[in-house]
Nucleic acid binder design. Structure first.
Lengths: 344, 344
DNA sequence: TTGTAAGCGTTATCAC
DNA sequence: GTGATAACGCTTACAA
């Protein structure tokens, strides 16, 4: 340990100097009603003068609670998640809480270890977005059972009970697909994600539903379910479809970046967007406005989800008797840009 | 407080059940050399069975130190910073530390408040990237003086002494500019950032140096110094130059996204890239591979910077006598893509 | 090899 | 209104 770290001022030091009891100082600093105005002022003034700063560790230990919110996500450096975290942090800070972050890197093993570490630091509540690999939830049910509020955000678990803050993935996917249909598409390909993740299952089912509702037969060869959907996957699946003579006239991608891959292939093959192929993505990431033609997408309120999840967590943590698990759905929006706009 | 939160197992509970002293339990759990193998095993086994988890608050209070690293950045949801944080988190977690994050939103006031809050939670070390507004450093020198290691990362302060982890902005900018010159450019515009921020000052001076070294006269009308450089600024400044008949044949942008704006203008005006106008950015953000033609850039090892900064912080924190402030420079690289490649 | 006991800085409960 | 005192759960001299 760095021996140079200075000893800090405590309430004892203040009490001694003012010739009052430490408990009086403590109460004065918290504006306890029973403390006289003059002592209160004197204490606060001296505290300021001596640079007193409350020792959060001691206070937490005594009060048996922290003001720390744990956040467990797959990756910090993904646009959607960094926005989510940004929302969580802003809201938490405003409410007087700190945010401690850990990333599972989509590994189940890391997720378990991080959940434990967060639990050990006695977090006030935990916000979780699951790792791709995760399909067992013991490490999380443990925490739920201990009484610590756990809120699932976006990538929520399959069957476990609990609070959730998310979008209606099925409905949103249905809107995206319907939009393509409204633009005259009849052979719509799906760039889908891992089928063990609820959000991708639901996006796929929304897609299927939209086709059914419009009496369009589902062609399974137009559907991709990729465990790691990215730009390359989007590019290659699209090429595969065109080279096999299995041409779609529309593509709905459950991730923007894969839609970008599809557009890149179209460019390279001289396929006109949106005339020959209309494309829509999901998330409304910044790339949508970079790619040419600009990419239509479903906007997904990442920062809002963070804020809502945090509010939910605090509400639950401060209740005497826990509420029954509740789902909070956030609104999504259709953002139409050039990549899908065929008609006026 | 949620009354439903369960009381957890303590070393006292284990001690009682095993009929040994709490101190023995504590030592056994830490593999203290003085504890016999059998007691050690017995303790660990029971701890596991009863679901014992060490109380970090109590332990920290007693040891007068935490294993929490404070991170103070302008925005969590910026690609460069989210990568930085990702590197910090991964390295910290591997070393047994937690990371607590706060964002100033580029506001000086927030930065001060957040620095205080982090200081109060007795962080082990602080990593800071400054808010745009910040030009006073009292809130940070306070922390330095208390003995808590403070490491400045990327957006470092003007004059304050301290540890820094950064890239050599001047040299990197010089390489970028030289690259354009090597490609035959002679009238090179600069899309620069806020002049009160050291990193943008240095990038500008690197640009000037490269021109001087090549005997190219500096044309001040080709230089932009924008307080909020972004895609629109890049677009409009480029348009301004072309419409005024002040045509550049190359653009060096100190931010990728502004270079994207420049390329967008070029598209709209029928200017050929790289033949009529060669463009290079800075950061090597993901957008470089999205835009057409793909954008050349200077790669900037964000995650590595995070890792290095964390290592630096831990090293300092564990020294008896502080080292003299040191600057750590990370390597950058020239990434040539189609936007600047005129010759083989 | 293990036990005893003090104390980290707060806050809550009682008493005065 | 204020003070004394006992925790909170853990670590670490010092004793045994």
């Amino acid at each position: 340990m760095n021996k140079k770290r200075k000893k800090r001022v405590t309430i004892y030091d203040l009490a001694m100097e003012l010739k009052v009891a430490p408990s009086t100082v403590s109460r004065a600093l918290q504006d306890h009603y029973s403390i006289g105005q003059d002592t209160r002022d004197a204490v606060k003034q001296l505290a300021l003068k001596r640079g007193y700063r409350t020792n959060t560790m001691a206070s937490n230990l005594r009060k048996q609670q922290t003001t720390t919110i744990g956040v467990l996500v797959p990756w910090i450096n993904h646009p959607f998640i960094s926005n989510l975290i940004s929302g969580i942090e802003a809201e938490a800070r405003a409410a007087g809480y700190e945010v401690i972050i850990s990333q599972s890197q989509d590994s189940y093993k890391n997720e378990v270890a991080n959940a434990r570490a967060l639990f050990d630091s006695r977090i006030h509540a935990l916000l979780v977005s699951l790792a791709m690999e995760t399909s067992e939830y013991g490490h999380l049910t443990e925490i739920v059972q201990s009484g610590t509020p756990v809120i699932f955000v976006d990538r929520v678990p399959q069957k476990i009970e609990g609070y959730r803050v998310m979008i209606d993935n099925a409905a949103t996917a249905r809107v995206a697909t319907q939009h393509l249909i409204d633009q005259g598409c009849r052979r719509i390909a799906l760039l889908g994600g891992a089928r063990n993740q609820v959000i991708y299952q639901e996006r796929e089912s929304g897609y299927r539903k939209a086709l059914c509702e419009n009496g369009i037969e589902i062609d399974e060869t137009l559907i991709l379910a990729s465990n790691r959907l990215n730009m390359d996957e989007g590019y290659h699946f699209t090429r595969h479809l065109f080279e096999e003579g299995n041409r779609p006239d529309g593509i709905f991608s459950t991730m923007d970046i894969a839609a970008v891959g599809a557009i890149k292939y179209a460019h390279s093959a001289g396929i006109q967007i949106p005339q020959d192929l209309a494309v829509i993505g999901f998330n409304d990431d910044p790339v949508c406005e970079i790619i040419e033609p600009q990419l239509s997408s479903m906007s997904h309120p990442a920062a809002d989800m963070g804020r809502k999840a945090l509010q939910q967590a605090l509400r639950i943590a401060n209740l005497e008797t826990p509420l029954p698990p509740k789902f909070v759905y956030l609104d999504t929006g259709l953002v139409v840009r050039a990549s899908s706009l065929r008609k006026g």
